[in-house]
């Protein structure tokens, strides 16, 4: 069901509290029909809670939700037939085989036996799981589980798909395959709502992105527009032996064309519209007793925009990435 001119997802002033914690704090956004919309933020930002509210797994405290023009605020079940969900953890039945799991999920959406078996075989092929079709889900590897969970989410060919961290914790090849499938679904005009903390993934896939931090949306824009201010910028990152925080003022005066930023991790970040000359910088620092151990040119990306907008260090996102143990970005 698609209504021309009606947003696929429309959320207004959504609030969700868990006791004293405000998990989602007065957020509003729209996702257009056929759009791939990214919801980017660190762990605990409110991404999964938002998906749970939109899919009816959680009850909202305030606000409104419309899916394809259907008001789901009071009745979250009203639009569930239009929605597919791939949760952040595999949640299929360990005692069923891959094929049985997909057929069962198709049956939940009222698909008839022949239709669901055909579709299950088709998806097992698409995800490269045909050889494991008759193996119990419990015996699947993490990547295989994730892929089958993804397949289960799209078994009924929903016009709207919610993807919660779809590549977290899986191997490089599987993550790549999942991203290709997301791109293909997008090409087929499926509306995709993607939450991720992999910045590069969002940059690569999404047409529009919202940054969410501490339950609040801090910026929503088209990916190309978010990247515009940093395009053509030259960024150099110097790793140094001591902190250079106290020298920032002096450096700004000595090199007026450059913008300096000192990070807590013993690095100095230099931004300039022109290519950065490294020699005078190194001499300047060494004269003040600071050794430069590494100089690295940095290609500006969405990560820089995210850091600028949210104030969250990219390193924190990296740590989360490592903690998740995934190959999401490769």
């Amino acid at each position: 069901m698609k209504l021309s001119g009606t947003p696929a997802i429309e959320v207004n002033n959504l609030i969700k509290r868990y006791s004293e914690v405000v998990a989602v704090n007065d957020i509003s956004f729209q996702v257009n029909d056929g759009e791939l919309f990214g919801f980017l933020g660190p762990n605990g930002a409110g991404k999964t809670t938002t998906i749970n509210l939109l899919t009816g797994l959680a009850q909202l405290d305030a606000g409104t939700i419309n899916i394809c023009g259907i008001d789901c605020t009071k009745n979250p079940k009203a639009a569930q037939h239009l929605v597919g969900t791939v949760p952040d953890e595999s949640n299929l039945y360990p005692e069923l085989t891959g094929f049985e799991n997909l057929c069962f999920c198709a049956a939940l959406y009222g698909m008839r036996k022949n239709e669901r078996q055909k579709r299950a075989r088709e998806l097992l092929d698409t995800f490269g799981l045909a050889d494991a079709a008759n193996r119990k889900f419990a015996g699947y590897s993490k990547g295989m589980k994730r892929k089958l969970t993804f397949a289960a989410g799209i078994i009924h060919q929903p016009p709207i798909l919610f993807l919660d961290e779809p590549t977290t914790g899986i191997d490089v090849a599987s993550a790549r395959q999942v991203r290709q499938i997301i791109a293909e679904l997008h090409r087929q005009r499926t509306t995709v709502f993607l939450t991720t903390h992999y910045i590069e993934e969002a940059e690569r896939l999404c047409e529009r992105i919202a940054f969410i931090v501490n339950g609040r949306i801090v910026r929503t824009n088209r990916t190309v527009d978010l990247l515009k201010p940093i395009k053509g910028k030259n960024v150099l990152v110097l790793s140094i032996s001591n902190s250079a925080t106290e020298l920032m003022g002096e450096m700004n005066s000595a090199f007026p064309g450059y913008q300096f930023q000192s990070t807590t991790s013993g690095q100095v970040r230099i931004e300039s519209a022109e290519p950065v000359s490294i020699g005078p910088l190194i001499r300047f620092l060494e004269e003040r007793g600071i050794q430069v151990t590494e100089a690295r040119q940095h290609l500006p990306s969405l990560e820089d925009v995210f850091v600028q907008v949210t104030g969250i260090e990219a390193g924190l996102m990296m740590k989360e990435k490592e903690k998740a143990g995934g190959g999401g970005n490769q």
Partner: peptide, 15 residues
């Protein structure tokens, strides 16, 4: 516990 119950809650049938 295994979260497979969520799959049922997401299905378009009444509780």
């Amino acid at each position: 516990r295994s979260r497979s119950f969520e799959r049922l809650l997401l299905a378009p049938i009444s509780l």
